[in-house]
């Protein structure tokens, strides 16, 4: 590792959790709230990763991705879309077709998602084929087994090869923080991923509990900050799994803004991996516009 000293900076659990909790004490009201909610919508990777996913399901989701606010809100906030949809490789082509002409990207999970417990060649083929199918972004999983065995080199080398297999596609590296134990390991894994060529680092597959938490995301943001200071490279961040409410999303944005500053407040460098979040953002925006608390019955579920 080139930045060994940075990698080995320890993380204190209690302090990092206290700091993360502090962000949740920020009170985001009125104009700041609307601005934050819209930004959050534009940062969503609208996701479906189910065995029961069908072309129909994905087409419906893509419709939502193009117009996440619904007609009423879209009138006052034109042009807002989510950042990407995130699907299994089999559904990349459908998504691509459905999103034609929009700015919404297609992300796909690959490398034997979610466990990654397949031979490396299989995982690399997975990536190559998914890119060929048209994916703009690849969400890979790291080799947690190797990481926990202390075999950092294997983890690193595999990411390098996946990156190569990605070609032009953007690479998000999933650490699966719910499986790798301490915050120290999260920090180490973040550095391995960033040094190996990740464009984004991502918390979770969504298939393991706990998924994204504020403290875990903070540790990753702080790793991104140290990496930026050391190299000048801006790495993106994607918390995924478990973020369902607007309130949580706003907390994450507060944390992002106060940790990495203005330059990261863009879908180019921050994404929410979520399925239900967009609806809640929509409802909160409607609340801000109308002053009424909203009912789910009035918002499409896709």
């Amino acid at each position: 590792m080139r930045h060994q000293r940075l990698v080995e900076t320890p993380v204190d659990q209690i302090n990092v959790e206290e700091r993360a909790a502090r962000f949740t004490k920020r009170s985001i009201k009125t104009t700041s709230k609307v601005e934050g909610l819209l930004l959050a919508v534009s940062m969503c990777d609208l996701t479906t990763l189910e065995g029961k996913d069908t072309e129909g399901k994905v087409r419906q989701m893509c419709q939502k991705a193009r117009n996440p606010l619904g007609a009423d809100l879209a009138a006052s906030h034109p042009g807002v879309t989510v950042a990407a949809v995130c699907v299994y490789p089999n559904l990349v082509e459908v998504a691509k077709r459905s999103l034609k002409g929009s700015q919404v990207k297609v992300a796909a999970v690959a490398t034997g998602f979610p466990s990654g417990q397949y031979p490396l060649e299989v995982r690399l083929d997975d990536v190559r084929q998914t890119v060929e199918l048209g994916a703009d972004e690849i969400d890979m999983v790291i080799n947690r087994g190797a990481l926990l065995e202390g075999d950092i080199k294997t983890v690193f080398d595999e990411i390098v090869q996946v990156k190569e297999a990605c070609g032009e596609a953007h690479l998000k590296v999933i650490l699966e923080t719910g499986e790798i134990g301490s915050y120290d390991t999260v920090r180490r894994a973040s550095f391995v991923a960033m040094e190996a060529g990740a464009d984004f680092i991502k918390t979770s597959t969504g298939k393991v509990q706990p998924a994204a938490t504020m403290p875990v995301a903070l540790v990753m943001l702080e790793a991104i900050r140290d990496f930026y200071y050391a190299t000048g490279k801006r790495i993106g961040m994607k918390p995924a799994g478990g973020i369902r409410t607007s309130k949580e999303a706003l907390h994450y944005l507060v944390m992002l803004s106060e940790t990495l500053g203005d330059d990261w407040m863009t879908p180019d460098l921050f994404r929410f991996g979520a399925s239900a979040l967009v609806n809640d953002l929509q409802m909160q925006l409607a609340k801000q516009a109308t002053g009424r608390y909203q009912s789910g019955d009035y918002f499409s579920l896709d």
Binding site: R26, S27, I28, K29, T30, T31, S32, K33, R225, Y228, Y229, T231, G232, S257, E258, L260, G261, D262, D263, M265
Partner: peptide
């Protein structure tokens, strides 16, 4: 400015917090 002068004349990365923590009154 996103870059500040480094002691040896190069520039080094800097973060900007001009908009951060500027929240509507609560």
């Amino acid at each position: 400015s996103a870059q500040v002068p480094h002691e040896n004349g190069r520039t080094r990365p800097a973060l900007r917090f001009d908009r951060a923590a500027a929240y509507a009154p609560a």
